[in-house]
Simulated assay, not measured.
Amino acid sequence: MSNLSKIILLAFSILFFSGCATKITVKSLHPSKIKDEKIHTVFVDRFFNDNINQTSQIEERLSSAYIKNKKLFRLKTNSFNTDAIITGEVLESSLNYHIYYEEEFNKKRCLTYEVDKKTKKRTCIQYIKKLIPCEKRDYKVKTKIDIIKTSANEILFSKVYTKTKFEDECYRHKSYPYYSDFHRNKKSINSNLAKSIAQNFLQDISPHYNYYTIEVIDEITSLELTNQQKDKFDEILELIENANYSIAKKELENLNKELNFKSWEVLYNLGLIYEKFENLKTAQDLYLEARQNSIDNESLAIIQASLNRVNRNLSEKIKAISQLP
């Protein structure tokens, strides 16, 4: 094998295997951005300039919001005896478009030939040109949303949300000037943008989950392992890959004991499993123990990143639970 072939094979191997790392997705509960307030019973007033269903999208998101089987909001038909009023305005619902044309040559249809005098062979030197109609479209929705505390007529939260969508489409089955049937769908697309705004608004004003995808440590290098222990660790990785987290946790705990709690890799992976089960305090303890057994700066950095995450999420979870109904 040539050196060039070896380099190409190595580069391919790095690319292939770097995308195949075993990962775990964990979630953590985070609080509303409205501090020191518990908003549960609300009235959603109709938004100004709302022709894209922004009001109803917000009502739908609020009415279907649950955390730990608890309904987060109770919607009322008026502002009497409510915690807050949600009001706002659709500041912009727009579509800007620009029509342009791409040139395309039909290689099956020749406009001008050149003839060789000796061979009489014809060669096309100019094909028929066709103009392809195209259109660029920019959709944009901008909505201002306020939350007003009913008892004090005080603004608790105010934010302007902006969502955009860009399309660039050509119609090769049409020719100039037949562009009148371009499908712009302004109302439909901007209504979907309003739905995204409603989801972002719910994320801001209610307890919610954030998700993190973290790579599992797939090799133990800090200790000398027997072949049996190596096989057991590989089996645990396979269990994690197949989302058999309860069994993986049990097997990791057994291997942790067998290795006298000295492998930071096992301790770290076990911490990830406990994070998966939202047991952040135990995950924190395991990361701290893993840090004590870390052997180099690289492993220390990996552990510290997860420790910082779980410390932050523990604090955020306490705040979020206090905001639940």
Rank of each mutant, 00 (worst) to 15 (best):
244 N>L: 05
279 N>G: 05
195 K>Y: 14
278 E>I: 11
224 E>M: 09
226 T>C: 09
255 L>W: 10
255 L>Q: 11
236 I>L: 11
191 S>L: 06
242 N>P: 00
181 D>G: 12
277 F>Q: 08
166 F>Y: 14
153 N>G: 03
223 L>Y: 01
135 E>D: 03
264 W>A: 12
170 C>F: 03
228 Q>Y: 07
245 Y>R: 00
185 N>K: 07
238 E>G: 07
241 E>V: 04
186 K>G: 07
200 N>G: 09
219 E>T: 10
238 E>K: 15
167 E>Y: 04
213 T>F: 07
185 N>G: 04
238 E>T: 15
178 Y>M: 11
161 Y>D: 12
222 S>G: 09
272 L>Q: 07
215 E>T: 11
244 N>C: 01
199 Q>L: 04
179 Y>E: 14
263 S>P: 13
196 S>N: 14
169 E>F: 03
215 E>M: 04
144 K>T: 08
145 I>S: 07
187 K>S: 13
229 Q>I: 01
135 E>G: 09
222 S>M: 03
182 F>D: 13
250 K>M: 11
218 D>K: 15
171 Y>H: 14
157 F>K: 09
174 K>I: 02
193 L>C: 12
191 S>P: 04
201 F>Q: 01
198 A>F: 04
208 H>K: 03
279 N>C: 08
230 K>N: 01
140 K>N: 15
182 F>T: 05
214 I>G: 00
173 H>T: 12
252 L>R: 02
234 D>L: 12
252 L>P: 14
265 E>H: 12
274 Y>F: 06
205 I>Q: 10
194 A>M: 09
169 E>G: 03
265 E>S: 11
225 L>F: 05
195 K>R: 12
230 K>H: 06
176 Y>F: 14
279 N>Q: 12
185 N>H: 04
232 K>A: 01
229 Q>P: 11
185 N>D: 13
192 N>Q: 15
227 N>E: 14
267 L>Y: 08
267 L>M: 11
169 E>Y: 01
244 N>Y: 07
273 I>K: 06
261 F>P: 06
171 Y>D: 15
167 E>S: 02
150 T>Q: 13
280 L>G: 03
143 T>I: 14
253 E>G: 13
275 E>S: 10
178 Y>W: 05
175 S>I: 06
173 H>K: 08
235 E>C: 00
215 E>L: 00
251 E>Y: 08
164 T>S: 15
221 T>W: 14
210 N>Q: 13
272 L>A: 06
187 K>A: 06
147 I>C: 12
228 Q>K: 11
225 L>H: 00
216 V>M: 05
175 S>T: 14
155 I>S: 08
173 H>I: 05
152 A>Y: 07
272 L>W: 10
148 I>G: 01
273 I>M: 02
206 S>T: 01
148 I>K: 10
154 E>G: 06
236 I>W: 02
155 I>K: 12
243 A>R: 03
245 Y>F: 08
137 R>N: 04
207 P>N: 13
168 D>S: 11
145 I>Q: 11
189 I>C: 02
230 K>F: 00
217 I>R: 04
146 D>Q: 07
257 K>E: 14
169 E>Q: 08
187 K>T: 13
163 K>I: 05
235 E>D: 13
274 Y>K: 02
273 I>L: 08
158 S>N: 10
255 L>M: 06
185 N>V: 13
172 R>W: 03
270 L>C: 07
246 S>C: 02
248 A>V: 14
215 E>K: 14
257 K>I: 02
174 K>F: 12
209 Y>H: 09
243 A>I: 04
240 I>M: 00
254 N>T: 15
255 L>G: 07
275 E>C: 03
